[in-house]
Design a protein around this nucleic acid. Structure first.
Length: 434
RNA sequence: GGGCCCGUAGUGUAGCCUGGUUUAACACGUCGCCCUGUCACGGCGAAGAUCGCCAGUUCAAAUCUGGUCGGGCCCGCCA
């Protein structure tokens, strides 16, 4: 007898079906007992007026069971139908007490994050914890699908690198046979090199590593970076406008394909129209005038400033997104193109979403001599970057790109308190397992 | 790297300031009994904690002090 999935039950009314899954909840109510069975598609209800016949009261929660029965319409059941239990077999029983319940709401459970992460695989059985990653999968899927539509090639570049790339961020050193190497903090150089290689448009979805000693609700040391890089652009706006269109498609796809998960998590999807942009200089002026901030020595936005600018964007443009553009030259990496009309500022931008930076990008320098000059300007040695610079000697088109933190985007879409909730097995300053 | 905060049954908390009527309380879970429409089911009962660990103060420490280990949040930096 073929397996029927929980979600398919309403299409099987009148039929005798067989289901496999976990005993999510056994709820005796007088002479009748309900068995809630959970599989990858959801939860369905079986019922019997003879629980003793099936030894239902001896079935432990989270046992794997096989049930057979006839589907009958039942307006009082959540699915509008339920399974009249005819056979029940316990296939696999838990051999240890459950660390906590998985059949209650996240709010009701009120678990400390550490408890969730210590028992991560088990915790994901809770539909709410699990739903986060169905949404994340849709985010990643849409990113790839959208960029393929736009003529981008999906690439995968090495995460083992020889040189410290962008400076600033700390790198994890690793021993690579007799050489010293590092875990990549970004696919930055490689995606630019592949634009120069003639692919023009590439995107990459891969983990990157940052050895930052931070401990906050928005940082992890290994995160999934959604990167793209595109050649033959007119300006950085080609890059930001593409992201704007991606976000439109993403919200549409989430509404269509993740409605249940969004609802379960109590999340609200944002409206995406034309995302407003603000010059860094003007952003500081807003912070100074509207929020009373002292911006005299501000070369970058602090988290409070990011929240305030999002508040401003909401009030002024009715947008939950805001591009902040033209960051000062000294705070952006050496490959960032500066504004020739205003050389203190660059064509580098961030995307803020609900108070948090979720994207960094820029137009890059494509002229070989200018790039070498800027590496020196930052006090770095161009010889160290020879592998990267080589292709620029052979003509690279004007190009730009960006990187989105997948976990951060998930966190912001779903209103999660901590980025670790949006990572299956997060790596932070102290956590290396599971 | 800097600052602030938290460790009490399987889980989440109260009690701690102001040490002693505490036999360490409550909710969920677990176990037992009852309930024919539950979906956070309900009712009655039971078991379950040497209060993170070590030392000190005291007649007396979950409670005060110091150390230690584990954890959280914010800042710097970043996605």
């Amino acid at each position: 007898m073929e397996r029927t999935l929980a979600k398919e039950l309403p299409n099987r009314i009148g039929q005798r079906v067989r289901l496999l899954g976990w005993a999510h909840h056994i709820r005796p109510v007088g002479k009748i007992t309900f068995l809630l069975l959970r599989d990858r598609t959801g939860i369905c209800q079986a019922v019997t007026t003879d629980p003793a016949k099936f030894h239902l009261n001896d079935v432990k929660r989270e046992s794997i069971v096989e049930i057979i029965g006839t589907v009958k319409p039942e307006p009082q059941a959540r699915q509008g139908c339920e399974l009249e239990l005819e056979e029940l077999k316990v296939l696999i029983e838990p051999v240890a007490p459950l660390p906590f319940e998985v059949n209650r709401s996240k709010k009701k459970l009120n678990l400390k994050l550490d408890m969730i992460l210590d028992h991560r695989a088990f915790a994901l059985r809770n539909p709410e914890f699990g739903a986060v990653f169905k949404v994340q999968a849709e985010i990643v899927r849409t990113f790839a699908e959208f960029l393929r539509q736009e003529g981008f090639l999906e690439v995968h570049t090495s995460k083992i690198v020889a040189a410290g790339t962008e400076g600033g961020t700390a790198l994890f050193p690793i021993q690579y046979f007799e050489q010293k190497a590092y875990l990549a903090q970004s696919p930055q150089f490689y995606k630019q090199m592949l634009v120069g290689a003639g692919y023009e448009r590439v995107f990459e979805i891969g983990f990157v590593y940052r050895a930052e000693d931070h401990a906050t609700s928005r940082h992890i040391n290994e995160y999934l970076s959604l990167d793209y890089e595109m050649g033959f652009i007119q300006s950085y706006r080609d890059v930001t406008q593409l992201e704007n269109r991606f976000l439109k498609q993403l919200v549409a796809n989430l509404a269509k394909n993740c409605a249940e998960e969004i609802q379960l998590l109590g999340a609200r999807l944002p409206e995406v129209s034309e995302i407003p942009e603000i010059h860094f200089r003007d952003a500081l002026e807003v912070l100074r005038k509207d929020y009373g901030r002292d911006t005299t020595s501000m070369l970058d936005l602090d988290p409070e400033g990011e929240r305030q600018l999002c508040d401003y964007a909401q009030k002024t443009y009715n947008s939950e997104f805001l591009f902040v553009t033209h960051y000062p030259r000294q705070t952006r990496p050496f490959y960032t193109m500066w504004d020739p009309d205003d050389p203190e500022y660059t064509f580098g931008f961030d995307l803020l979403f609900r108070g948090l930076e979720v994207t960094t990008g820029s137009q890059r320098i494509h002229d070989y001599h200018q790039l070498v000059e800027n590496i020196r300007h930052f006090g770095l040695n161009p010889e160290k970057f020879a592998f990267y610079l080589e292709i620029f000697q052979y003509a690279v088109p004007p190009h730009g790109g960006l990187a989105i933190g997948a976990e951060r985007l998930t966190q912001q879409f779903l209103g999660l308190n901590n980025i670790r909730e949006a990572s299956f097995f997060p790596r932070d300053r102290f956590r290396l397992t599971p």
